[in-house]
């Protein structure tokens, strides 16, 4: 049985003037997979992710997301994906409930669905006591868990997470990964970037981007074998140290 491909890209590129932020990347992601999208600062992760979400038009190349074309069918794509941007993706000055209502509305959920799923989500995350509080007053880790749940309110096929756990405490960071596992078990594909190398180990497969190109792509186990090292951190060092744009 051939696993269903929910993301397929061929030579996908993005140029800013004469600068190539994303250089002909080609890869596939399967249904239910937790796919780690790694790379040094400036490697082009956010740039690529925005194209995959239909938020920024590619300069060249092809890609389909959940079977839809990223040039012509961006509206269909947006309905089938959830996106958590690198900067915080909820409204700080709205309460937890108001955020759920607002985003539920955007995703086209009915009033009844919003109410039902919102309640479910608040119970799951243990946010009942703070449901009426401004999101801005919550600890970062809670905000991120909430943002994840809001991004999956409409039962998307794929969730894109851009550095969801940066700065989050070690316990909450692990709770966040429990949400990712649970989504994956339900068949949702998770596409995630991180600078925590322990989190790279939690992914089914990992790609490592260097200077706009994908330089390695495999399971963490195979990557460690390929580079003859013991940890994903060492794999990352092997590849990223050669980067020209390091620190960019």
């Amino acid at each position: 049985m051939e696993a269903e491909k929910v993301i397929q890209t061929v030579d996908l590129s993005k140029h800013f003037g004469d600068f190539i932020a994303c250089n002909a990347i080609s890869f596939e992601v399967f249904k239910g997979e937790i796919f780690g999208f790694l790379g040094a600062n400036g490697a082009g992760k956010t740039t690529a992710m925005k194209m995959l979400c239909g938020l920024s038009a590619p300069s060249s190349g092809k890609a389909t997301i959940a079977g839809f074309d990223i040039y012509k069918q961006t509206e269909a794509i947006k309905k089938r994906i959830g996106y958590m941007s690198q900067k915080f993706s909820l409204y700080e000055d709205l309460s937890v409930l108001e955020n759920i209502e607002f985003f539920g509305g955007i995703y086209g959920l009915s009033q009844q669905e919003i109410k039902q799923r919102g309640q479910q989500l608040i119970d799951q995350l243990g946010l009942a006591d703070v449901a009426k509080n401004m999101v801005g007053s919550l600890p970062l880790g809670w905000k991120q868990k909430l943002a994840f749940s809001v991004a999956s309110l409409h039962d998307p096929e794929i969730i894109f997470l851009d550095e969801p756990t940066g700065g989050v405490d070690p316990v909450t960071r692990r709770q966040f990964w429990d949400l990712i596992y649970a989504a994956s078990v339900r068949g949702i594909t998770v596409f995630v970037t991180t600078h925590y190398m322990d989190e790279a180990e939690y992914c089914h497969r990992v790609s490592i981007m260097v200077d706009g190109e994908i330089k390695a792509l495999d399971t963490p186990e195979n990557l460690k074998k390929q580079f003859q090292v013991d940890s994903m951190e060492d794999v990352f060092f092997e590849l990223a140290r050669g980067a020209q744009r390091l620190g960019d």
Binding site: N41, H195, A240, L246
Partner: peptide, 14 residues
Amino acid sequence: DEPTTGVDAVSRKE
């Protein structure tokens, strides 16, 4: 104050 939040593993080492 958090000089390395969001900074990749190689740059953090540097």
